[in-house]
Computed example of a mutant assay.
Amino acid sequence: MTLLLETTRVTLRRFRPTDAVAFAAYRSRPEVARYQSWTAPVSLPAAVTTVARFVDADPEEPGWFQYAIALRSTDELVGDIGIDLHENGMQAQLGFTLAPAFQGRGLATEAVGGLLDVLFDERGLHRVSAECDARNHPSARLLRRLGFREEGLLRSNTWIKGEWTDDLLFGLLAADRREFAGS
Rank of each mutant, 00 (worst) to 15 (best):
T39C: 02
T8H: 10
V128L: 07
E61Q: 15
L173Y: 07
F148H: 07
D58W: 11
L3G: 04
S37E: 13
A33E: 01
A99Q: 00
D75T: 06
L169M: 13
W164E: 08
W64Q: 08
F148T: 11
G106N: 12
S183F: 09
S139Q: 06
R53M: 05
S28D: 05
T158V: 14
R16L: 12
G124W: 08
Q66V: 11
E110T: 09
G106K: 10
G106R: 12
R72Y: 01
R145G: 02
N88K: 11
A175W: 03
W38V: 06
L5A: 15
W64T: 12
I69M: 13
Q93T: 13
L153M: 14
N88R: 14
G162C: 06
R141T: 11
L168G: 03
G171L: 05
G162E: 01
P59I: 06
R149V: 13
G114H: 11
T50P: 00
I160D: 14
D167P: 01
W38Q: 00
A20E: 04
R177C: 06
A52F: 00
S73W: 00
Y26I: 03
D167H: 05
N157C: 07
P45F: 01
L44C: 00
A24M: 07
P17F: 09
R144L: 14
S129K: 10
A134H: 06
I160L: 15
G152R: 02
F54P: 02
E61C: 08
S43C: 06
L146P: 00
R14F: 00
S28H: 01
A24K: 07
P17N: 09
T7R: 04
P41H: 08
R34Y: 01
E163H: 08
F65R: 04
L115K: 09
E131Q: 15
G171R: 09
L116F: 00
L143V: 14
D166P: 02
L44H: 06
D56L: 14
L77P: 11
E110W: 11
V51G: 02
A40V: 03
L85N: 07
M90T: 12
P41I: 00
R178M: 01
T7D: 06
V42S: 04
A33F: 06
E6L: 08
T2S: 15
A175Q: 15
I81T: 07
T74F: 04
L153G: 09
R155I: 10
L115P: 11
F148L: 07
F65G: 00
G124I: 05
Q36L: 15
Q91A: 15
A33K: 06
L3W: 06
G152D: 01
L154P: 03
P17Y: 07
L142D: 01
V78E: 07
R149M: 11
G124S: 09
M1F: 03
A25R: 15
S183T: 15
R141H: 13
E179A: 14
R135M: 12
D133L: 07
G152S: 13
A174G: 08
E6S: 08
F148K: 05
D166A: 01
W164N: 09
L44F: 03
G63P: 07
R123L: 13
A57Y: 04
Y26C: 02
R127F: 04
A140R: 05
T2V: 13
G89N: 09
H126Y: 12
